[in-house]
Design a protein around this nucleic acid. Structure first.
Lengths: 221, 221
DNA sequence: CTAGTATTCAAGCGATCAATTGAATAATAG
DNA sequence: CTATTATTCAATTGATCGCTTGAATACTAG
């Protein structure tokens, strides 16, 4: 094979990975899978797609190497293939948000005034948590917390936050996080806590980004 | 607009960026532009595409926000929109190489035994260059060197390397770099230098990746 | 102004893609 | 074995993509 054709094939093959990410539906699936492995029908239900359609998109993602599958009983569980994939997706979001006006506008509308709650950066949180200056709050469902969470994080799912407020010391600042930058749960948590007199902020990104950045994590198993 | 439709539109918009990268031809264009701005016909000539086709692909990239254009006289010069785009492209390559067997195989065939020359990592080079332990050699054409290069790098374009060997002290190890991981010039340089008794290795990636990583650069203007 | 060059536009054709539908396969419970 | 559930496969439709061709536009040199 000539160097020329080989180079063309090489680029074409790399493009296949981008092609796999070139669909809103597949990006949504990817974002859910970034929380942990999920069955096909769970993913179909979460995204509002038909099962057959979700299955086909998942297979497209698998052909591109960005997700992997595991069969257990009659269910097939899909997961992201590795942290490099989460980082790639994150990079895609960064470029889209910084370069496309329509995305910036959609994010603003979507997050509304909530965007005003200035977020805590990962490094900052890590430093302050080590010194015991903040309470780290994970507001995701229990299963997701158990599959992996920030070191020392307290888990209070968002719908139980009101009833379990007592678990959070009022002296220290609370930093809440959830699934990712477009996940609203941590916004709600911060709003609820502030209304009741806590000092509270949210982590800039969610658990998948933290993990993909190579920062330390814990899991309860 | 409902939260649901908004979320769907948001993901669809982010997917547009991936869609722009989902073509071997456009990735090739992007890689050339990562060296510096280029006119449409220069890019068409470098990639072997027709001018009209290159123009259309460049416009697709521009609509996705990943490249920008500047008109000067009768020429239009395109360039990558920012370092975040170079990092995104790099992330895409990393995922493709680690997850797709066909890409791994193509890279191996393409680079051949040259892959055996174990590369120097960016951080390592930075540390050793600061201590004056290595000669940094840029083998790209002069214009690309002048548009930006590693701190203290000596520029000897690959086709003039043989005649200008005298400029390289033989005591110190030489670390050569060029356009990127799929650019063969630095491989050739290392081979030529070793044959003549130099200690020589190559930098893992090229200039665009170095710059996009936020490492220090110089330019002669 | 005219000729020449660089780029973009517009139309057309074959290939590929996204989603739906209905059927086929695989695993489990009874 | 049969019924049920989870997933995949296959066929179809309309939409989009990639490339080519030929013309239109924008700029410069003379």
């Amino acid at each position: 094979m000539s160097t020329e054709t080989m180079k063309r094939e090489l680029y074409q093959s790399i493009a296949k990975v981008a092609q796999a990410l070139a669909s809103g539906n597949r990006l949504q699936l990817l974002e859910f899978m970034a929380q942990g492995e999920r069955s096909v029908d769970a993913l179909a239900a979460m995204t509002g797609m038909t099962v057959a359609n979700a299955s086909q998109h998942l297979q497209a993602l698998r052909r591109a190497g960005v997700v992997a599958a595991r069969k257990d009983g009659q269910r097939v569980y899909y997961r992201v293939a590795g942290d490099d994939v989460v980082r790639l997706y994150h990079g895609l979001r960064v470029v889209a948000e910084s370069r496309l006006a329509e995305v910036r506008q959609l994010v603003n509308e979507f997050l509304g005034d909530r965007g005003a709650l200035e977020p805590v950066l990962a490094e900052e949180l890590l430093a302050r948590a080590k010194k015991g200056l903040v309470t780290v709050l994970d507001v995701r469902p229990r299963e997701e917390y158990e599959a992996g969470h920030l070191p020392g994080a307290v888990n209070i799912p968002i719908d139980r936050l009101e009833s379990e407020l007592a678990r959070l010391p009022k002296k220290r600042e609370v930093v809440a996080y959830c699934r990712g930058p477009y996940c609203l749960m941590s916004f709600e948590a911060v709003a609820a806590l502030r209304k009741r007199g806590w000092k509270a902020r949210r982590l800039e990104d969610g658990f998948p980004e933290w993990k993909a950045a190579g920062l330390p994590i814990e899991s309860s198993s």
